[in-house]
Simulated assay, not measured.
Amino acid sequence: MKNRVMTEIQLDDDAALIVVDVQQGFDDPYWGRRDNPAAERNIVAVIREWRARGRPVVLVRHDSTSPGSPLRPECPGNAVRAEVLAALGPEEPGLLVTKSVNSAFYGAPDLDAWLRARGIGQLVVIGVQTNMCCETTARMAGNLGYRVLFVIDAMHTFDATGPDGEVVTAEDLTRATAASLHHGEFATVLPTATLLTASAS
């Protein structure tokens, strides 16, 4: 059966939450117009639920090598957002992955090795940007055999200019990501409310 936008899901007790690149630098005007102002609220709600249930949390941070990027390691924008750190609480995440490319599976330490060593087969992806690092991480996870839940309203992205010079809105990019992941069976796309309901049951 194809993955789909679902009202009911099965959630493993040890499903790992992958929190992708929720960093201060994404507030910078450098990126342009964004979508989904509720993203941070939903991200925090999911992290708090994972902490309350004692499920594993992986924090991913993008250490950009691009000139001028607010996410470069020497920039204040490289830091993880304060509300994410508050939601995590005093306990360190199970793993901190740093990367300079889109996929969290091409970072350090080795995310795939860490997950497989713990027998984890289901991942929940949230964070920034929807159609960039979140989507790439989800696609690769699907290719590696993980069952992926992609929480589409616990992330956001920015408008982008195509090769024809036309601007594609962040909302349209988000819809395209949802359709691509769903149609290609890389992930099950769902809203925060559905995930939290499944977690509480």
Rank of each mutant, 00 (worst) to 15 (best):
Val46Asn: 04
Ile47His: 04
Ile47Ala: 00
Ile47Arg: 00
Arg48Glu: 15
Arg48Asn: 11
Glu49Val: 05
Arg51Val: 10
Ala52Met: 11
Ala52Val: 07
Ala52Asn: 14
Arg53Asn: 06
Arg53Thr: 08
Arg53Pro: 00
Arg53His: 13
Arg55Val: 01
Pro56Asn: 05
Val57Asp: 02
Val57Asn: 01
Val57Met: 05
Val60Tyr: 03
Val60Met: 05
Arg61Lys: 15
His62Thr: 03
Ser64Glu: 01
Ser64Thr: 10
Ser64Trp: 00
Thr65Trp: 01
Thr65Pro: 00
Thr65Arg: 15
Ser66Gln: 14
Ser66Asp: 09
Ser66Thr: 08
Pro67Trp: 12
Pro67Gly: 08
Gly68Glu: 14
Ser69Asn: 14
Pro70His: 14
Leu71Cys: 14
Leu71Val: 07
Leu71Gly: 04
Leu71Ser: 05
Arg72His: 06
Arg72Val: 03
Pro73Trp: 06
Pro73Ser: 11
Pro73Tyr: 08
Glu74Lys: 03
Pro76Asp: 09
Pro76Thr: 03
Gly77Ile: 08
Gly77Val: 07
Gly77Asp: 10
Asn78Arg: 12
Ala79Tyr: 00
Arg81Asn: 01
Arg81Ser: 00
Glu83Trp: 03
Val84Asp: 03
Leu85Cys: 10
Ala86Pro: 07
Ala87Gln: 06
Ala87Phe: 08
Ala87Gly: 07
Gly89Asp: 12
Gly89Leu: 11
Pro90Ile: 13
Pro90Lys: 12
Pro90Tyr: 09
Glu91Cys: 05
Glu92Lys: 14
Pro93Trp: 08
Pro93Thr: 10
Pro93Cys: 13
Gly94Ser: 09
Leu95Gln: 08
Leu95Val: 02
Leu95Met: 15
Leu95Ala: 06
Leu95Asn: 02
Leu95Ile: 03
Leu96Ser: 08
Leu96Ala: 02
Leu96Asn: 02
Thr98Tyr: 00
Thr98Gln: 12
Lys99His: 12
Lys99Cys: 09
Ser100Tyr: 10
Val101Cys: 07
Asn102Pro: 03
Asn102Leu: 10
Ala104Asn: 00
Ala104Phe: 01
Ala104Leu: 03
Tyr106Met: 07
Gly107Ile: 01
Ala108Gly: 00
Ala108Asn: 09
Pro109Asn: 13
Pro109Val: 07
Asp110Ala: 11
Leu111Arg: 04
Leu111Val: 03
Asp112Thr: 04
Asp112Ser: 14
Leu115Asn: 02
Arg116Cys: 08
Ala117Val: 01
Ala117Ile: 00
Ala117His: 04
Arg118Phe: 12
Arg118Asn: 10
Arg118Gln: 14
Arg118Met: 10
Gly119Asn: 10
Gly121Thr: 13
Gly121Cys: 02
Gln122Glu: 14
Gln122Asn: 12
Gln122Phe: 06
Leu123Ala: 11
Val125Glu: 05
Val128Trp: 05
Val128Phe: 10
Thr130Gln: 04
Thr130Asn: 06
Asn131Ser: 13
Met132Ile: 13
Met132Tyr: 02
Cys134Phe: 08
Thr136Cys: 15
Thr137Val: 08
Thr137Ala: 10
Ala138Pro: 04
Ala138Cys: 13
Arg139Ala: 07
Met140Trp: 05
Ala141Thr: 02
Gly142Ala: 05
Asn143Ser: 15
Leu144Asp: 00
Leu144Met: 09
Gly145Cys: 05
Gly145Thr: 02
Tyr146Lys: 05
Tyr146Leu: 06
Arg147Ala: 13
Arg147His: 11
Val148Gln: 01
Val148Ser: 01
Val148Pro: 00
Leu149Val: 04
